[in-house]
């Protein structure tokens, strides 16, 4: 009960902070996007090969692109206040429908990647810390440095070359087999096959970060007095590491992981393009190319909400991991 109250206090506080943050982000994004030359009408005209001044003006007035910037902002904000993300001139459909179409696959990819990165990263970090200075630690350190410095699109391409082209084990792109009417477990397995390579390429960079972070945190915790107490109790090294050291070492890792969710979104643009994954990252990329700022604003708004939500989750997680963190502090 006490635990529940404590966590709900953390939650309420985080949500109160979230509203002004989101509004600020929307306004900032709006003006940033206006710095780019051209608009949706230009792109559409360019793609159709020819257009008259009149059709361009008609297009602009239809989507409100001819209004002064401030009016456009107010119109957008008023839309938002009515829980609408606006209308895409390019796709000719409401932005919210567009985003909802893409959101599940993107969230799935990001979620799986983050979980993979955390699980593999922390496990490697713990192994590195227990073997500190010996050859497994050195080997893994070099590997982590490699993952850290190689760009994710290259890792993606190499994984495709190895697992799709040479070995033929996994599909090279897409989000599911076309034309199968599999249900239940079979459908899930099918999706997992498509998910594996993109998730892996997206997560390897973060695996490297978390491994190094977890290693450092574990080494620091290991020299603390309560670890000596745990050993004096007669606990096995595994129990000391997993029960006493790991939970204390997780705190710095979760802090960073929350910050990374935003970065993960950026990485997803590249990885989704490499694997032709129908996610938000690719939608954002296409929206930039076609100057479809309503869509882009929607995606940016959504990702900022996601980042804020992730931070709330991290706050909750930390409050759960560390009883010393109180809502008041």
């Amino acid at each position: 009960m006490h635990q529940f109250l404590r966590l709900s206090r953390v939650l309420v506080r985080a949500l109160i902070h979230a509203v002004p943050t989101v509004i600020g982000i929307v306004i900032l994004d709006f003006f940033l996007l206006r710095l780019a030359p051209g608009d949706a009408a230009d792109v559409m005209a360019g793609e159709s090969g020819a257009a008259t001044e009149e059709t361009m003006a008609a297009l602009r007035s239809r989507f409100g692109l001819d209004l002064p910037a401030l009016d456009q902002l107010l119109a957008y904000l008023s839309n938002l206040a009515h829980f609408s993300l606006g209308y895409s001139p390019r796709y000719n459909m409401p932005v919210s429908d567009l985003i909802l179409q893409r959101l599940p696959s993107s969230l799935g990819l990001m979620g799986i990647s983050l979980v993979l990165a955390l699980v593999i990263g922390i496990a490697l970090g713990v192994v590195m810390a227990t073997q500190a200075g010996r050859w497994p630690d050195r080997l893994l350190s070099v590997l982590a440095l490699l993952f850290y410095s190689v760009p994710s699109f290259w890792i993606g391409l190499m994984l495709i070359v190895l697992f799709s082209v040479k070995l033929g084990w996994l599909p090279s792109g897409g989000a599911g087999s076309i034309g199968t009417d599999a249900t239940g477990l079979a459908a899930l397995l099918d999706q997992a096959r498509y998910m594996l390579l993109p998730a892996l390429s997206l997560s390897l960079f973060y695996v490297a970060i978390y491994a190094r972070l977890a290693r450092a945190a574990m080494l620091e915790v290991r020299s603390q007095d309560f670890i000596r107490t745990a050993r004096a109790k007669g606990l096995s090294p595994a129990a000391v590491t997993l029960r006493h050291a790991l939970r204390n070492a997780l705190l710095p890792v979760t802090t960073i992981a929350g910050v990374h969710l935003g970065g993960l979104m950026g990485g997803a643009v590249v990885v989704e393009t490499v694997y032709s994954w129908p996610g938000l990252g690719r939608l954002a990329y296409e929206a930039v190319m076609s100057r479809d700022f309503t869509v882009l604003l929607g995606v940016l708004l959504l990702s900022s909400v996601l980042v804020i939500l992730a931070n709330v989750v991290v706050d909750l997680l930390q409050a759960w991991l560390d009883p010393r963190i109180e809502a008041a502090s």
């Binding site: 007095d225 309560f226 107490t229 004096a232 007669g234 606990l235 204390n248 560390d322």
Partner: peptide
């Protein structure tokens, strides 16, 4: 911890905080 046990100088840091 069973036949021989030990307590330490720093009670503030000798217990696991979490």
């Amino acid at each position: 911890g069973r036949d021989m046990a030990m307590i330490f100088q720093e009670p503030m840091t000798s217990l696991n905080p979490v």
